Measured scan of single mutants.
Amino acid sequence: PDDLEKRARELLKRGKNPDEIREYLRNAGYDQSQAEEALKRAL
């Protein structure tokens, strides 16, 4: 898994919901489609 996916998994483990994770990834400078893909793979 790429770093983005790892980060998404990490956040899920900490109890973040998908919307929070999307926002976090966007704020971290990733584009929307990258964030969506990583989140899908992590779920």
Rank of each mutant, 00 (worst) to 15 (best):
Q34D: 12
R9V: 08
S33E: 15
E23G: 04
P18N: 05
L25V: 01
E5F: 15
R7Q: 14
A38G: 04
Q32I: 14
K16Q: 08
A42Q: 02
K6S: 12
E5N: 08
R9P: 00
Y30T: 03
R9D: 03
G15P: 00
K13G: 10
R7D: 06
D2Q: 11
L39I: 14
E36N: 07
E37N: 08
N27E: 12
E20Y: 10
L4D: 02
K40C: 12
G15W: 03
A42M: 13
P1W: 14
L11M: 14
A38W: 09
G29L: 02
L43H: 04
E5R: 07
K40H: 13
A8H: 00
R26E: 05
Y30S: 03
R26K: 11
L39N: 00
E10M: 07
E37D: 10
P18S: 06
L4Q: 03
E37Q: 11
A35I: 15
D19Q: 10
K16C: 12
R22K: 09
E10L: 07
E23L: 06
A8P: 00
R22S: 04
N27I: 12
D2P: 09
E20H: 04
E36W: 04
E10W: 07
Y24M: 14
S33M: 14
K13H: 09
A42T: 04
N17D: 11
D2V: 11
R41T: 06
Y30V: 09
D31I: 05
L4E: 02
P18F: 10
L39D: 00
Y30A: 12
S33W: 14
R22P: 01
R9C: 08
E36K: 03
G29T: 02
E5C: 13
L43D: 03
E20R: 03
Q32T: 13
E37A: 12
R41F: 04
R22D: 01
A28W: 11
E36M: 05
L25F: 15
S33A: 14
A38F: 10
E36H: 04
D19S: 09
K6H: 11
A38P: 01
E23R: 08
D2N: 12
Y30H: 05
L11A: 04
Y30R: 01
G15I: 02
D2S: 12
Q32F: 12
L11I: 01
D19H: 08
P18E: 09
N17H: 13
N27Y: 07
Y24N: 04
G29R: 02
A42Y: 04
S33G: 13
D19P: 03
K16S: 09
K40D: 09
Q34Y: 07
A28G: 06
E5V: 15
Q34S: 10
D2R: 10
E10R: 05
D3W: 14
R9E: 04
K13T: 07
R41P: 01
L11G: 01
Y24K: 03
A8R: 01
P18M: 09
A35T: 13
R9K: 10
D2K: 09
L4P: 11
R41L: 08
R26Q: 09
R26S: 07
D3R: 07
R22I: 15
R14N: 13
L12G: 01
G29K: 02
G29P: 01
Q32V: 13
E36Q: 05
Y30M: 08
Y24Q: 06
L4F: 05
L11H: 02
Q34L: 13
L12C: 04
S33Q: 14
E10K: 04
R41I: 07
A28K: 08
R7S: 08
D2H: 11
P18V: 11
L12R: 03
E10I: 07
E5G: 07
Y30E: 02
P1N: 11
K13L: 13
K13M: 12
A28V: 06
A35E: 01
L39T: 03
K40N: 12
A38D: 01
D31G: 10
L4A: 15
R14W: 09
E20V: 04
L12N: 02
R14Q: 15
G15V: 01
R41H: 07
A35S: 08
R26W: 06
E37F: 03
E5I: 15
E10S: 06
N27S: 11
A42I: 15
D2F: 12
L4Y: 05
E37T: 08
D3H: 10
P18G: 05
A8V: 15
D3I: 09
E23Q: 10
L25A: 02
L25T: 00
Q34W: 08
A35N: 01
R7A: 14
Q32E: 14
L39M: 05
R26F: 09
